[in-house]
């Protein structure tokens, strides 16, 4: 085991790459849960984003069209969850779970029907990397950030945007009020349901962007179930980051670093003992449980998170 394997530029660059899909899902979770809707369908939104991004890229040969399509389908899936959670007052866990199963079944089904057993086309339009020429020559820093994908930067920009939106704008204030105390929000004339719809739909778009990143920036293909639970790690990052965009970024980076390490330490050993790298991958989940249990800081969700809101008097 070497220092390079622990904090080399390669590991840090990989950390950013690996953190990005987690971050986008986590941002989706922040927006949705701050408005009071638990959206565990983020995993499914990612998956449809990944798949329909590939389909659109294949059909249109345009990255822009592909990303728009991916986010539109993610928004659509999230909208179904929104109807269930907000209008039908379904159990949000069951509904989200049903949509995850649906997303997995649907994408696998369509993948089989569209592309059979040969896999998705190899000449897909991919999301480009952003080369920062002046930095490329800088040692270390250049290796870490000079060749990152456009969506990595987009994710970082979204952290700032959403942080400002939530805590420095009027619509953000209203969204937080809806998630904390929807009755209070309603009594001052804020449209609770409408706010929640937009928040859930936005969360689906963010997660779908994360999915499209996986298929169009990283893998350049689609395989069944390729999101591999990143939507859930995103939720973990949201919780660990205490329902704030900046916190989610920090958590995503920690989780991404854990995964990057498990790659870089593959086959490494300390003395005679091989490093159990797979156990590093449990880091996000263990940390999240500890955080929620209050052993590592205290993580408290918005007060009305996950509770269907029932308007009075429409009995």
């Amino acid at each position: 085991m070497t220092i390079d394997q622990l904090i080399g530029a390669g590991v840090l660059a990989a950390t950013l790459r690996l953190a990005t899909p987690i971050l986008l899902a986590a941002l989706g979770g922040v927006v949705s849960e701050r408005a009071g809707v638990v959206n565990i369908a983020l995993e499914g939104c990612m998956l449809v984003g990944a798949f329909f991004g590939v389909v659109a890229a294949d059909q249109s040969h345009s990255v822009v069209v592909a990303l728009v399509a991916a986010m539109a389908v993610g928004a659509g899936l999230a909208a179904i969850h929104a109807v269930a959670a907000i209008h039908l007052r379904s159990d949000q866990i069951v509904s989200g779970m049903a949509l995850n199963i649906l997303a997995l079944g649907l994408t696998s089904y369509l993948d089989y029907q569209f592309y059979g057993t040969t896999g998705t086309p190899s000449d897909l339009a991919g999301v480009p990397d952003i080369e920062i020429a002046p930095l490329a020559a800088v040692p270390f820093v250049g290796d870490v950030i000079a060749h990152q994908n456009a969506i990595v930067w987009a994710g970082l920009a979204l952290v700032v945007l959403i942080q400002v939106f939530l805590f420095r704008t009027v619509p953000g204030l209203r969204l937080r009020a809806v998630g904390e105390h929807p009755r209070a929000a309603e009594t001052v004339g804020i449209a609770v349901r409408q706010t929640r719809y937009w928040a859930v739909i936005a969360s689906g778009m963010l997660a779908a962007l994360g999915g499209a990143y996986l298929s169009l920036s990283v893998a350049h293909s689609f395989t069944d179930g390729m999101t591999g639970g990143r939507g859930f790690i995103g939720l973990a990052a949201m919780i660990f980051g205490r329902w704030t965009p900046v916190g989610a970024l920090v958590a995503s980076l920690i989780f991404g670093y854990g995964t990057a390490l498990s790659f870089s330490l593959q086959g490494a050993s300390i003395g005679d003992v091989r490093v159990p790298v797979q156990l590093l991958s449990t880091l996000p989940y263990v940390l999240t449980i500890l955080a929620v249990a209050g052993f590592v800081g205290r993580s408290r969700p918005p007060a009305a998170d996950g509770i269907p809101y029932e308007t009075e008097g429409h009995a």
């Binding site: 269930a84 039908l88 007052r89 379904s90 159990d91 069951v94 509904s95 779970m97 049903a98 949509l99 995850n100 199963i101 649906l102 997995l104 079944g105 649907l106 696998s108 089904y109 089989y112 029907q113 069944d224 269907p308």
Partner: peptide, 22 residues
Amino acid sequence: SAQLVSVIEAVVLFVIAAELIV
């Protein structure tokens, strides 16, 4: 595709979720 049954299962769950909670 055998994945059709996942779609069916998802719809079953979804209907039950909405119905029972209502």
